[in-house]
Design a binder for these strands. Structure first.
Length: 583
DNA sequence: GCCGTTTTCGGCCCGACTGTTTTCAGTCG
């Protein structure tokens, strides 16, 4: 059973307990456990079977037993009991904005309403106002919310790259304004999450009204509301909501910290502060002992007042960063500047848009020392496959190009397809001519988990496969990962000395942050690759670096922070040779 | 129901907003 399924069961129990009127802390405990379970890189089902689920934060003895029952029998007795007590659609009432468990329960108890259809009818016929606490406005809101739900479905999330394309433009424009002092992106975009719901921008200015006006007049906004002294809200032409706020300079750090979140991180931070006699809010940090409120101009100062080292935004997800900060064990996160090369890129030989020479020069211009050119293999099948003889001619061209280049090395490589049985798409004697081999799955995504895992593990067994490309095949907001057991892949990568890729394409970011952390902890070298299909898209590497940072990776975890000779020695083909020479 | 650099029991983040109220509960982020 997958972590996501277990987490969903915990969320369902939280909803049911809340309807049942349980103390809110118990309900919250289930919700927090659900988050931790969803974030767990290891199989929680497995842990529960071994009576070890309590190793997960926010999972205690009670939940360990409930999860175990769920895994062993497919359900939890407490959930069955509560489902019998409350009709199915009652939980869906609480998913309407403004309507919570307390209100849902009252509607059910006092009017016997248990379906969304009945709820709509009662709201339209003004029967809900019989209940104390509900009035005409509540009825209107319910009718509106139900209509909106039918119309729009669940809230849309937007890919980070689309959000930052707008956010970077906005920030640059606002920083150029004469009255602006500081302008920063906050919220989930600053934490570099895969997707965002909206975009938060905060600023300081010596004329806040003038800066707000500059914001509201930007062409990329299609609508603007609440344009006043200290900020406004806008919506872009492609539907991204932007919250812009101008704040006092001496509170900028407090607000930036507050709005960057995550919610989970802030809750943990505040609980920690309370234990130390302090209260954190977006306005400052109040000390119980002195009654003094510390207003902080920078985020560094916020963490300093709390007695903590600075915690990077990408770590603020409530995944143990606070405990690490307290223990002085925060990782020194890898940066884009640490990368010495890119080991997965395409040219016009397969489906890229830039030539071999253009790609090499663009990579060198970025400050890299090497670039692996890895076009698709023979059976790629989008009409841009590379037959073996053609690949060998490309190797010649690469060698010739290297003669011309100064202090830069192009590596002749391939992104070779992993066949259904785990064999590779080129013969070994062809692969032997190459400097670098990425192996990826591009066909039969719908294979069962066991077969897919075997298929990829077989590819790792090949001595010439350096790295597995985009190991789960997910496309964010578009396509689920293929069914593959990532824990087994990681263990096998460690065993065989195969690297795993963080593919930086903003649609992929694959491995994801949770899995990359698991792999790094298992000692698997990670390679951050752009998978660029043109010289311009080499820059998507920032999303791969962001994923690596969200996975707590340091420079040491990432193989391509090394020079090519250093990296070369790390590979299984060399490491094995070294071992046998020692013998 | 979970958790511990004051605690294994007694706490458990903070503020804004809304709609319904005669001073606040419920909901949200």
């Amino acid at each position: 059973m997958k972590n996501a399924e277990i987490a969903a069961a915990m969320d369902e129990l939280a909803d049911l307990y809340e309807l049942d009127g349980a103390v809110i802390y118990r309900v919250v405990a289930y919700r927090e456990a659900a988050i931790a379970i969803r974030n767990s890189p290891v199989s929680v089902a497995q842990l529960a079977l071994e009576d070890r689920a309590t190793e997960i934060r926010n999972v205690g003895k009670t939940l360990q037993e409930k999860i175990r029952a769920l895994v062993e029998t497919g359900d939890i007795p407490a959930a069955q009991k509560l489902r019998a007590k409350f009709p199915g659609e009652l939980v869906r009432f609480t998913q309407l904005p403004g309507l919570g468990a307390k209100t849902a329960r009252k509607i059910y108890d006092e009017l016997g309403i248990s379906t969304l259809a009945e709820l709509k009818e009662a709201a339209e016929n003004e029967r809900l106002r019989q209940i104390s606490g509900l009035g005409p406005k509540a009825e209107q809101n319910i009718v509106k919310a139900l209509a909106k739900q039918v119309e729009e479905g669940p809230a849309q999330r937007i890919l980070l790259s689309a959000v930052l394309a707008i956010g970077d433009k906005l920030v640059t424009h606002l920083r150029d304004h004469p009255t602006a002092e500081r302008v920063e992106i906050a919220g989930s975009a600053r934490r570099m999450t895969d997707t965002c719901k909206d975009l938060d921008i905060i600023a300081t200015a010596h004329d806040p009204a003038a800066l707000t006006k500059a914001f509201t007049e930007m062409e990329l906004l299609s609508e603007v509301s609440g344009g006043r002294e200290a900020g406004a809200r806008g919506v872009t032409h492609n539907g991204l909501q932007i919250d812009f706020r101008v704040v006092e300079p001496d509170q900028f750090g407090n607000v930036l910290q507050h709005l960057t979140g995550s919610k989970q991180h802030n809750m943990e931070l505040r609980e920690y502060a309370v234990r130390r006699g302090m209260h954190v809010s977006e306005y400052g940090i109040e000390e119980d002992a002195t009654g003094e409120t510390h207003r902080c101009g920078t985020e560094e100062r916020v963490y300093e007042v709390l007695g903590l080292p600075y915690i990077e935004p990408e770590l603020r997800e409530g995944r143990g960063e606070l405990q690490a900060a307290i223990a002085g064990e925060l990782p020194q996160l890898v940066t884009e500047a640490d990368l010495k090369g890119d080991l997965h890129a395409h040219t016009t030989l397969s489906d890229g848009r830039s030539s071999l020479a253009d790609m090499a020069r663009a990579a060198q211009k970025r400050g890299y020392k090497y670039l692996a050119v890895t076009d698709h293999s023979a059976s790629h099948g989008f009409g841009n496959d590379v037959q073996a003889d053609e690949l060998l001619r490309q190797v010649e061209r690469v060698r010739a190009l290297n003669e011309e280049l100064d202090r830069f090395k192009v590596l002749a490589g391939t992104e070779v397809n992993i066949n259904l049985d785990g064999s590779l798409d080129y013969a070994d004697d062809v692969l032997e001519e190459l400097d670098w081999v990425v192996a990826s799955v591009h066909t039969s995504f719908r294979m069962g988990e066991e077969n897919m895992t075997k298929r990829m593990m077989a590819a790792m067994d090949h001595p010439l496969v350096d790295v597995i490309g985009h190991p789960t095949g997910r496309k964010i907001l578009q396509r689920d990962p293929y069914a593959v057991n990532v824990e087994q892949l990681v263990a096998h990568a460690a065993e065989t000395g195969t690297f795993l890729e963080i593919n930086a394409n903003p649609d992929r970011r694959d491995l994801n942050d949770v899995h990359a952390r698991l792999a790094a902890e298992a000692g698997v070298p990670i390679v951050i690759n752009s998978d660029a299909h043109s010289r311009r898209t080499l820059s998507v590497i920032r999303y791969g670096v962001a994923t690596a940072r969200r996975a707590w990776l340091t420079k040491e975890h990432v193989a391509n922070t090394r020079t090519w000779p250093q990296l070369d020695k790390l590979r299984k083909r060399r490491a094995k040779a070294a071992t046998s020479r020692r013998r």
